[in-house]
Every structure is written in C-alpha cells, then in structure tokens.
Deep mutational scan, measured.
Amino acid sequence: MAASAHGSVWGPLRLGIPGLCCRRPPLGLYARMRRLPGPEVSGRSVAAASGPGAWGTDHYCLELLRKRDYEGYLCSLLLPAESRSSVFALRAFNVELAQVKDSVSEKTIGLMRMQFWKKTVEDIYCDNPPHQPVAIELWKAVKRHNLTKRWLMKIVDEREKNLDDKAYRNIKELENYAENTQSSLLYLTLEILGIKDLHADHAASHIGKAQGIVTCLRATPYHGSRRKVFLPMDICMLHGVSQEDFLRRNQDKNVRDVIYDIASQAHLHLKHARSFHKTVPVKAFPAFLQTVSLEDFLKKIQRVDFDIFHPSLQQKNTLLPLYLYIQSWRKTY
C-alpha cells in the first residue's frame, strides 16, 4: 500500500487533545456564526451592495467568503475584532481572482478581468477605488493598515499566469505559485494584525505553500471532471502515471504514490512551519489557523491510503469550527 511504503514521513496525529474535556472553552465561534445575517447573495444585490440601503460592502465580502471560501471565513471569524473586516476584504479579493479561471470560457475574457483587478489595485493606492464592493472594502483595508501593494499585485499576476490550462511542470513550480498567492495572502494578513517579524514571515511562507499544494490536491477530482489535470508532471512521470490515469480515476498503487509524494511535500512544509513556532510572536498565530484544515485533509487522505478520489475527501468536517476554536484558544498553530 502507498501509505505503508512511505509511512515514515507522517508524524503522530495532533488533533487529539488529552485532558481537553476537563476545561470548557468559552463560547465564541458558534455564537458569532449565529449572529451573522444570512440572506442569499443575488446578482441584483451584488450590483447594489455598495449603494445606500443595501447590506453594505462589508456584508457582501463576508457573504462571498462564506459561500466560496468557507474555511477562510471560519478562520477570519476568530481574528481580533479590529482586524476582521480587513481580512474579510482581503480574502474576498482572493476569491474574486480565484473564480475568474473557472467562470470564463475564453482566456481573453479572463485576461480582461485580471486587467480590471490590476487597475483596481492601482486605483486603490491612488484613493480612487471603483464602485465595486470588494474594491471598496480592500481600499478601506489598505488605508487602515498601510498594506504593501507588492503582495496584492503578486496575487493578481500569479492568478493571471495561471489562466493557462497547463499542469505544473514540477513541484517547485506549484510551490512558486502557492508562494505568490497563498503566502502573499498571509503576509498581508500579518500586516493587518500589525506583525512585522521575520520568523512570522518564514512560517507564512511555508504554510502558504502547504495551502497551495493541498488546494491543488483537493481540486483534482473537480478538475478531472472537466478533463483537466494540474498535478506536477515530474512526480507523475517518476511513477509512470499519465494524465489519462487521473481522468479515468485510476486507483492503482502508482497513482496513489503520486498523491503521496505531493501530500508529503505539504506535510513537510507544515511540519517545518511549526518547528520554530517558539520564535514566532503569539500575536501572529491567528493568521495561521488554516493549519487546522490543512492537517485535517492530510490526515483524511492518509486514512484512505492516498486515494484522491475517495468520497470521504469531499465531505465537510462538521467539527472544523470546534477544532479551529480550540486551536485559537490554545494559542498555537
């Protein structure tokens, strides 16, 4: 089996927390979720979201995140109150960019949308954001926290390059993509939290790379249903696996070995980020709550012996909000 052949990389499970039942964490995340308004986002309300009498641009960002990046939404709820709305805006910006690729039928249209967001970032730093909910909220975040323009532009530029429907040539190319998107998002989150620390940035770099790799793995069944495969070609070739094997949902050992190798790289990034947690300011830990969902996925895929098409991998963990709150309460990542 794939797991038994390579099992030495995987460390002990961390979500089991001995003695936790003896201490009762304060009510927090679930209460916040219940208090949030929840009407559906419609095209009509989106168009009017920044106008008078609408929910408001902040509510639009929150709803977009809740629907399109639920794990990011849950993590954002546990940030300090003064930072929450800015991170909602930042993550909503990322969602807007991420959904361009799947929402257009022609690359030219995707490039036009990316050009809109490039100009939007430029206009935000000229205090002239367009009348668009996410743009307005992002402008507020930039003004409030003096966010670095370079990180925002890196996210747009990398998403634009990724409009080509090509597999990553190697794991390094996937890591570079993750660094310029997910890690950049974390650098900006640290700025919102008021953290300027080399060790925190180092952790953000590795956690962002782990996030990018896990996202690529999780999306494999969806991409396969659209006749697309984006997994690193070098690892596929190493194990003699073709793109057609993934399109046919082949579950042979060599296919699972490909998934094992890729998942192991995410695991190593996560492990390395945690190896120097004592040197990272505690104030930075809330920015890294996504490690909970990353670890949850890596454990699940290990349990199914790296069968990327196993139905259990597509099921939401209903206990994730609780695990996130516990992680926040324990002040760790």
Rank of each mutant, 00 (worst) to 15 (best):
T279P: 04
A273I: 00
L147P: 02
L270F: 02
Y333D: 01
D305E: 08
K154N: 11
Q211R: 09
R159H: 05
S103F: 13
D234R: 01
T291E: 01
Y323F: 15
W117H: 03
S50I: 07
D257Y: 07
Q115W: 07
D102E: 14
R256D: 00
H131G: 12
Q327K: 06
K149Q: 05
S205C: 09
N128D: 11
Y260E: 06
S76H: 03
D261Q: 11
F306C: 05
C236S: 06
K209Q: 06
P52F: 12
L322D: 00
T318G: 13
Y333F: 11
W329P: 01
K283F: 07
I262C: 12
V121G: 01
N146M: 11
R249P: 07
A204N: 01
A141G: 04
L188D: 00
E173A: 13
Y73Q: 02
S293N: 10
I109S: 12
I171W: 07
P286L: 09
M112T: 15
T291R: 02
K278F: 08
S76E: 01
S275Y: 06
N250I: 13
D197S: 14
S184D: 01
G224M: 11
K166T: 12
S225F: 15
R248M: 07
Q132Y: 15
V95F: 05
K119I: 03
M233F: 08
G110E: 10
C61F: 07
K154R: 11
W329F: 12
R227L: 12
L217R: 01
L190T: 03
A89N: 01
G208N: 00
D305M: 03
P281E: 04
Y187M: 08
Y73T: 03
D252M: 11
N146H: 15
P221K: 13
L74E: 01
G53Y: 13
P80W: 02
P52G: 11
E71Q: 07
K140I: 02
P221S: 11
A92I: 03
S264K: 10
A263D: 05
N170E: 08
A48S: 15
V214Y: 04
P133D: 06
A49W: 15
N317F: 09
E71L: 07
G72L: 10
N162S: 12
V95E: 05
S293G: 14
K101E: 08
V142I: 11
S50Q: 06
F288A: 00
M112Q: 14
L186M: 10
V214R: 02
L322P: 00
S103T: 15
W329Y: 10
I124N: 01
K196D: 05
N128W: 08
E173D: 09
R256Y: 03
S103K: 05
Q132G: 15
L313V: 14
K101L: 14
L78T: 09
I213V: 10
M114F: 14
Q302R: 07
A92C: 13
M237E: 05
R159W: 04
R256K: 13
N94K: 04
H310G: 00
Q99E: 13
S103Y: 14
R144K: 12
Y70N: 09
L289S: 07
L313G: 02
S184A: 12
D102K: 05
A273N: 00
P52D: 11
L163W: 10
D164E: 12
R91F: 05
Y260L: 07
G56Y: 10
E244C: 03
K316E: 08
P232F: 02
V280N: 00
T189P: 01
L190I: 04
L147D: 01
L62K: 06
L77Y: 03
G240Y: 04
K140H: 08
H145D: 06
A98E: 05
K209I: 06
I326M: 11
W151E: 05
I213K: 00
K316L: 11
C126W: 10
V156S: 03
Q315N: 11
R68D: 04
D234T: 04
S242K: 04
A203C: 11
V241F: 03
G56T: 13
V241P: 00
S225E: 12
S293Y: 09
H239D: 02
Q315R: 11
K331H: 09
D307Y: 03
F276P: 04
F276I: 07
P321E: 00
A167S: 14
E158R: 03
E71P: 06
K119V: 04
R226T: 14
L62S: 06
N94Y: 06
K101R: 10
K143A: 08
G224V: 09
E96S: 13
D69T: 00
A49P: 07
I235L: 11
H310W: 01
Q302N: 07
I136D: 02
R144E: 09
K283I: 11
K283N: 15
A266V: 06
L64F: 14
K300S: 12
L322A: 13
H267W: 14
Q132F: 14
A273T: 02
V87T: 11
A98I: 05
L74Y: 07
D245A: 09
D69R: 01
H131F: 15
L65E: 02
R144S: 09
L138I: 09
A210D: 02
A141M: 04
Y325V: 12
T215G: 13
T189A: 09
G208K: 00
I308C: 08
H206D: 04
